[in-house]
């Protein structure tokens, strides 16, 4: 483990490879939604919300890609200085991109124009990322807070409009939130990390199902 980084390689050795596979699936799901939203933004370039939605999902995809690359590296440990530098940089980028992606997903449902808030939050997340390297719990606790806030917004939206896909979205993010809660307790037992990854996989598969339902409903509208 890198001496100043608290959470390189949380995965138990028996789970090596499977953790990467789970992250690849999750990355593909968020990448698809990110590209789809970006395509929507290109259709109407004045639609800032679509740009934010695609940015959030593309950031999450980038965070997974960085995590996958870093995890593969930790599974094949060497002692070179460059290796440690890459690990540290990779994990810090993963933390920042994940938290900022989750924050955008929460903030973009707000009716107010929050342009300056994004800048301020990016700054605070950067500071948090710096401190989270000493204690990984802060990363997952912050992720849980952002995800709970986003899930609450989806639940409120569902209660107001009774739209089935919003309910599916709230369930997806509820499951992803639960996975982050499991990750907080990884140091109690490394197998808690495995449970967290499994729950995360279910969450992102559910998100993929929600996305498929969105496309299906759009086709019906012809």
């Amino acid at each position: 483990m890198v001496y100043w980084l608290d959470f390189v390689n949380l995965s138990p050795p028996g789970f090596y490879g499977k953790d990467v596979a789970i992250d690849i699936i999750s990355a593909l799901v968020v990448l698809s939604i990110g590209f789809f939203s970006f395509k929507n933004f290109m259709l109407d370039t004045k639609n800032k919300k679509q740009l934010l939605l695609s940015s959030a999902f593309l950031m999450l995809a980038a965070s997974f890609i960085v995590k996958i690359a870093t995890n593969i590296l930790t599974h094949t440990e060497t002692a070179s200085e460059l290796y440690h530098l890459y690990l540290a940089g990779g994990f810090l980028a993963h933390l920042f991109l994940t938290l900022f992606g989750f924050y955008i997903l929460y903030a973009l449902t707000s009716k107010d124009d929050l342009t300056m808030n994004y800048v301020i939050m990016a700054y605070f997340i950067l500071i948090l990322t710096y401190f989270a390297r000493f204690n990984y719990h802060w990363f997952y606790i912050t992720a849980v807070i952002f995800l709970l806030a986003a899930t609450r917004r989806y639940i409120l939206s569902y209660r107001k409009f009774r739209y089935k896909n919003t309910k599916l979205l709230a369930i997806s993010f509820g499951i992803i939130t639960l996975s982050q809660i499991f990750f907080i307790f990884t140091y109690a037992d490394r197998w808690v990390y495995v449970a967290g990854e499994a729950i995360q996989l279910i969450g992102y598969c559910f998100l993929l199902y929600t996305f498929a339902m969105v496309l299906k409903n759009a086709r019906k509208k012809k």
């Binding site: 395509k39 109407d44 989806y154 409009f161 896909n165 496309l215």
Partner: peptide
């Protein structure tokens, strides 16, 4: 194709409550 994509965009906005 434009109609299809516009419908998808609106469905996405409706789902996320945008």
């Amino acid at each position: 194709a434009f109609i299809n994509q516009f419908n998808q965009m609106k469905e996405m906005e409706r789902t996320f409550g945008l």
